[in-house]
Amino acid sequence: MLLDVRDLTARYGAVVALKNVSFHVGEGEIVAMIGPNGAGKSTALKAVSGVLQTTDGTIENGKILFEGKSIKGLTTNELVGRGISLAPEGRRVFTTMTVLENLQMGAYKRKDKASVSQDMDMVLTLFPPLKGRTKQKACTLSTGEQQMLAIGRALMQRPKILLADEPSLGLSPNFVELIFDKFTEINKNGTTILLVEQNASEALRISHRAYVFSIGEIVLSDSGRNLRRNPDVQKTFLGA
């Protein structure tokens, strides 16, 4: 088990955002988290990536194990060193820096220059629209291109697990499909993925397993395929 979260309770001040939530991600898996707005999906990713403490949140109790070791309390930049890499909600690319600089910053912790430049080629091949724009400031990119950059930047860390928070947000339908196909591709190349998504049908299409969140709790968990057939899920999330 790569990531194992047990009985996690997290809050923002008086607001309890997660109540005794347990989930896990095995090596090589794509796991999705779906659920309505405010259900606590982002909070779960923030807890795993260490961002929670820097945004007024606290982990009240529970265990977060990564490769069998507790990572609770580690800072975000320390977790990057462990192989956990987040493509945050809302893209958060460095808008005043160029595409190339954004990708270089993605590899900030890495010392192995040769394989960094290999990964740079890999990312630019994975996302062809970025290739001709490496000298452009990130603020001049379209939303979809910025999303590619955010994912590319996270991949530049060569993470063991990629955490992606709503990568399809604000993208046109064609683009959504493309981004999700890219996730399958990234996963085939050996990166484990934990994905939070509003677009349940696409998320369930590509993921091996998925968790359904509702008001701070996990109410369902199954394989992506089974959840797509589940009548409740169909009614609530797939608009059937």
Binding site: F94, T96, Q157
Partner: peptide, 19 residues
């Protein structure tokens, strides 16, 4: 560059591993 990244977006900077 890391100093520019922090000035640009503090959270994103820590997400890429900058202390």
């Amino acid at each position: 560059k890391a100093m520019r990244a922090v000035a640009d977006d503090r959270l994103a900077a820590s997400v890429v591993g900058i202390n």
